[in-house]
Nucleic acid binder design. Structure first.
Length: 542
RNA sequence: GGGUCUAUGGCUCAGCCAGGUAGAGCGCAGGACUCUUAAUCCUGCUGUCGUGGGUCCGAAUCCCACUAGACCCGCCA
C-alpha cells in the first residue's frame, strides 16, 4: 500500500523534473546557477575564479574562515561540473586599524588609522600586524586542507594591478557619487573621491582626504587633516601631497573597491555577509556600469552570532576561532558546520562541537549505507554533504564511531593517564574492540572539552557524624588487602551498618571523589583510581 | 529611515534554502547491566511547527500579509 503511494509521489516528482543537481547540496545548486548565468552572459568559462576577502584588522573568527571555506566548496562544485576554478584569498591588509582589539597592547594606539600592513606585529612573528592576522586565517585554512591563491592588498596596489580600474573609477567619480547617494543614501562621495591615499608623511589612511584627480598624471591631490575614526577624533599632520595611483600606497573606498578587484582578477563568484550588503549593491553597479565587467554571482549569508545573539566582532578578543575549535573538534566537524547550510542566522559556540562531532558520524553512516533514509533526495543530499565535508575526497572506509558526549563524560572522570584509561573503559563497555590511534585523538579532543567546559557544580558537602563513621570504616576497608569485586557490596553494607542511607552515602562519595553528585559505578571506579589514593582523599573528610 | 534573520515538545535546538510519516539532546517515566545508588544501554512520554491567508494531490518547508524578538546598514572598512 505504502509503496504504491510512494511510487505515485516519485512519479509526480519526476514529472516535475526534480533532477538532483550535482551532489544535491546548496553548493551544487549555486555552482549550477553560476554556470547558467555565465553562459547567458556569453563570457568565457575557461576559468571560473571565486574570491574570498580576508579581514586583517583583528583576530580572525570562524565567520571569516567560513567565507573562504564556502567559496572553496563552490570551487569544488564547479570542478565537479567539469570547469576549471580557483580560489583567490585576498587579504585586506591596506585597511586602516580602527581600534585596538581587546587583549592587544596599548601602544597600538599610536598606529590607529594606519594600514595594518604598516603596523608592527604585536606578536613579533610576522612582517606586520596585518600579516599576522591573515596568517592566523590562512593557518586555519591549511588545517582544514583548503587550497587557495593568496593575494594581499598591499602588493596589489603597490604593483599597480588595479591602476586601470582606479583610473576609470576616479574619472567617473561624479557619476558614482550620485549613484551611491541614490542607492544607499550615503552622500559623502558626492564631495570626496572614493580613494584614500596613505599620507606620505604620517602613514595614516583616513585622515588623508583626496580632493582632486589629475587623469593625465594618474595622481591624486590630498591633504592630511583631522578625521573621525570610530567615535574619536584623530588629528591629521597637515601634510599636502600627491599620490600616484599606479604605485603609491592608498586604496579605493570599499564602496568601489570590490568592483575594481572583480574586474582586475576576473572574479565570477563571491559570497558576502549581510553586514556589507549595501557595499555589494554599489559595487555590483560599478562593476556592471562603470567597469563593464558583469558582477560576480553572489550568495548572502548571515553572520555567526555568539550565544547571546550578538554579532561576533573581529576586533573583540574572545571569539570562536578555528584554532580554538580544533582543540576540541576535528577539522571535519568544522567543515560540516560550514557546509551544512549557508542561510539562516546562527548562534555559534563551542558547545555546538559535540553535536557536530556526532552528526559527522551520522552522515558517514548514511554515506556508507549503514543507515537508510526514507527519502531519496535527502539521502543524496546527505551523501553530498558528507562528500563536501571531506572536500570531495572521501575515505575508503568509515571511521570508528564513538559517541563524543560519552567521551566528554569519561573525560570528566579520568584526568590522569586519560587516553589509556578511557580506552580501557571503552573496551569494557564493548564500544570498541582494540585501542586505535584515531580514537586516541578523539579522546584527547573530548578531554580538552571536558577540562575547559566543565560544568561547575557548586555544592557544599554536608557530612554528619554517622556518615563520618561510615567513611572511616570505608577507609579501613580500602587500605586493607581486599578482593576488588566485593567493594561495591562492601560500600553498600558499610552505609547500612552505620545507619546512613546508601543513596546519600554514594552521593557523598561522588562529591568527595569527583566533586559531582553522580558518577560511574563506584566499586570498579575506585579500583580504577587506586584504593590508596581514594582512601587518602576520603581521609581528609573524616 | 532602509534591509535581513528568527519563531517547532517542559528547556535548548535540528529539520526549511531541491515540499512527501514531526526529529535530537537535556528533562521525565519504565526496563537491562546477578542485588541496592549512580555512569552506560534500551523503551516510552511530551507538538494546534508564531497568527491569518494563498499555491499544491500534499506545506514546518514555497508565496503574501500580520505579530513578536534579534541583528545589520544609515560612521568606516
Amino acid at each position: 500500500m505504502v509503496h504504491i503511494w510512494q511510487n505515485h509521489w516519485c512519479d509526480r516528482m519526476s514529472e516535475d523534473d526534480q533532477k538532483i543537481i550535482g551532489r544535491g547540496t546548496w553548493i551544487d545548486k549555486l555552482a549550477h546557477e553560476m554556470i547558467e548565468r555565465e553562459q547567458q552572459l556569453g563570457r568565457s568559462t575557461s576559468m571560473l575564479r571565486v574570491e574570498s576577502g580576508l579581514g586583517a584588522s583583528g583576530i580572525p573568527h570562524i565567520g571569516s574562515l567560513g567565507d573562504a571555506v564556502r567559496a572553496y566548496g563552490v570551487k569544488l562544485a564547479l570542478e565537479n561540473f567539469g570547469y576549471k576554478s580557483e580560489l583567490v584569498a585576498y587579504s585586506d591588509d591596506l585597511d586602516g586599524l580602527r581600534k585596538i582589539p581587546e587583549g592587544l597592547p596599548d601602544w597600538l594606539g599610536e598606529h590607529i588609522a594606519k594600514p595594518v600592513s604598516l603596523i608592527p606585529d604585536p606578536f613579533g612573528c610576522h612582517d606586520s600586524y596585518g600579516m599576522h592576522m591573515s596568517s592566523l586565517l590562512l593557518d586555519g585554512l591549511d588545517n582544514l586542507g583548503i587550497k587557495y591563491d593568496f593575494r594581499r592588498a598591499r602588493d596589489t596596489y603597490k604593483n599597480g594591478l588595479l591602476k586601470d580600474q582606479i583610473h576609470t573609477i576616479l574619472t567617473n567619480s561624479e557619476k558614482i557619487g550620485t549613484k551611491i547617494a541614490e542607492l544607499v543614501g550615503q552622500e559623502k562621495y558626492q564631495k570626496y573621491l572614493p580613494y584614500y591615499p596613505v599620507c606620505a608623511n604620517c602613514n595614516r589612511l583616513y585622515t588623508a582626504e583626496s580632493y582632486e584627480y589629475i587623469p593625465d598624471e594618474m595622481k591624486i591631490k590630498y591633504r592630511c587633516h583631522e578625521a573621525e575614526i570610530g567615535s574619536k577624533m584623530l588629528k591629521g599632520c597637515g601634510h599636502e601631497g600627491e599620490a600616484d595611483i599606479t604605485k603609491d600606497l592608498g586604496k579605493l573606498a570599499w564602496k568601489v573597491e570590490f568592483a575594481a578587484r572583480w574586474h582586475a582578477f576576473d572574479i565570477r563568484f563571491e559570497a558576502y555577509g549581510k553586514d556589507i550588503m549595501d557595499s555589494v549593491r554599489v559595487n555590483d553597479w560599478v562593476s556592471d556600469e562603470i567597469l563593464n565587467h558583469p558582477h560576480p554571482h553572489h550568495v548572502k549569508y548571515e553572520m555567526f552570532l555568539d550565544k547571546g545573539g550578538k554579532k561576533i566582532s573581529k576586533s573583540l578578543g574572545n571569539v570562536v576561532t578555528s584554532q580554538k575549535w580544533l582543540k576540541y573538534g576535528t577539522p571535519k566537524s568544522m567543515l560540516l558546520l560550514l557546509y551544512k547550510r549557508i542561510t539562516g542566522a546562527r548562534e555559534l559556540g563551542f558547545e555546538d562541537i559535540p553535536t557536530l562531532m556526532d552528526e559527522y558520524n551520522e552522515i558517514e553512516d548514511v554515506y556508507f549505507g549503514k543507515v537508510k533514509l526514507d527519502n531519496e533526495a535527502k539521502t543524496a543530499r546527505t551523501k553530498g554533504l558528507y562528500e563536501y565535508t571531506n572536500l570531495l575526497n572521501v575515505p575508503k572506509t568509515p571511521s570508528i564511531h564513538v559517541n563524543y558526549r560519552l567521551l566528554i563524560e569519561l573525560g570528566r572522570i579520568f584526568k590522569e593517564d586519560r587516553v589509556n584509561r578511557i580506552t580501557k573503559k571503552l573496551i569494557d563497555y564493548g564500544v570498541i574492540k582494540n585501542p586505535d590511534p584515531y580514537i586516541d585523538q578523539i579522546i584527547q579532543l573530548a578531554g580538552n572539552y571536558a577540562d575547559d567546559f566543565e560544568e561547575q557544580e557548586i555544592m557544599q558537602i554536608q557530612i554528619n557524624d554517622a556518615t563520618k563513621n561510615a567513611l572511616r570504616k570505608l577507609v579501613d576497608v580500602l587500605v586493607a588487602e581486599k578482593d576488588p569485586e566485593d567493594l561495591q557490596n562492601a560500600i553498600y553494607n558499610i552505609a547500612k551498618e552505620n545507619n546512613v542511607l546508601p543513596k546519600d552515602f554514594f552521593m557523598t562519595l561522588y562529591q568527595i571523589i569527583l566533586g559531582a553528585s553522580r558518577g560511574p559505578k563506584i566499586g570498579p571506579f575506585i579500583m580504577d583510581i587506586g584504593r590508596n589514593k581514594v582512601a587518602q582523599t576520603i581521609g581528609k573528610y573524616t
